[in-house]
Design a protein around this nucleic acid. Structure first.
Lengths: 197, 197
DNA sequence: CCCCGAATGTAGGCGCCGCCAACAATGCTG
DNA sequence: CAGCATTGTTGGCGGCGCCTACATTCGGGG
């Protein structure tokens, strides 16, 4: 019997997002097409339009999901019991791990193409994600382990270095293995500086 | 009189690259289309194919040109007479300035989509560009102003932090003004570390 | 000098794509 | 259970990258 698929899919939106994330991981952002996704999921080429007003809306949804996953990943790597340096190193490893496993997705998350309305949700998601790092720095600051200054601003240094390394991996200038192996050194250099002491 | 354009353009390849760079700056990478470029330059839609085997080839050429311009920019900002910290700050300002004025182009330069053959030229261009930074660090190292270790590896810290900040600007998390104003602090933190001394 | 092949540009077509409008099936709610 | 909002389908529009066949121009060897 011809396996009569029901007219309504059930949860097309989630299915599309899942397929999109798979394609993103396997073939990159350029290979993402609404029509192809529709084919994969088994609906007509216009069905995705019911759930995402245009392609950018789907990309925004992907990015949001990415932020949630990243925040979770970082949260799981957080261990307040650890001393500052290994604590930062653990978070860094977690971020780089996410960047390695989700390179295309991360790029999407950094691509500000959202219209102003989606921008607010995004900003909140970013804030929640960056929070883990800032918290570690603020904690260390209270204990006098780190110099004074706005934690958000100090985080700019660590965050930038971290994401820079992630970019270098994704650009192929650095193997994932080398980057992960170098995390301890990176954190050490950030904390102690490049000048001799 | 109807201004009879000659059948042959003269230097179509250069004209295409120039138009592409303008479009890239004004409307972003997504708005780049070979057909549109051909229209702007006043040739038929298939003419670009004579000079670039496909769209990616044009993007690669754009990236190469970008590397040359960036290397020039960094070279011009280099001043070996300066002490380490302002010397690094000057280079950093130059890099961020380039990143601000050429956000889309820089993204292209970091997008490794080149087939293996173009990859070699790219790698060389990258090496030449990164050279300025590494040289500063190596110099400082010889004078004992910086801790020991492979200069290339130490440069990973500064380079990553720098490009990370560039990404944050391009993502809209940081205004260009704030980033440029923060360059001194950034360099200072990189050199002296976040730990109190 | 001129002729012929190489280089460069043109015209048209193929199969994708995103987006839109008109229509069909379904589910939900009063 | 009637009617309406939701969700999916079909078909079409213009634009895209790339390909092939053809036209024009350029330049170097007889």
């Amino acid at each position: 019997m011809p396996e009569t698929r029901p007219y309504h899919h059930g949860d097309l939106r989630a299915a599309l997002l899942a397929a999109a994330e798979r394609t993103l991981r396997d073939k990159g952002a350029a290979a993402l097409s609404l029509r192809e996704l529709a084919r994969e999921v088994g609906v007509s080429h216009a069905a995705p339009g019911r759930h995402f007003k245009d392609k950018q809306a789907l990309l925004n949804a992907l990015a949001m999901a990415g932020y949630e996953r990243l925040a979770q990943t970082l949260g799981a790597a957080e261990d307040p019991a650890l001393p500052l340096e290994p604590r930062l190193a653990a978070l860094s490893r977690a971020y780089l791990g996410f960047a390695i496993d989700n390179a295309a997705l991360l790029e999407l998350m950094y691509a500000r193409k959202h219209e102003p309305d989606a921008s607010e949700q995004m900003a909140a998601a970013v804030e929640a994600t960056v929070g883990s790092l800032v918290r570690v720095l603020a904690d260390a600051q209270q204990r006098g382990e780190i110099i004074d200054g706005d934690p958000e601003e100090l985080n700019l240094v660590t965050g930038a270095a971290l994401h820079g390394v992630a970019t270098f991996i994704s650009a192929g200038w650095l193997t994932p293995e080398a980057a992960l192996a170098g995390v301890e050194d990176l954190v050490h250099h950030l904390l102690h500086g490049l000048k001799p002491r």
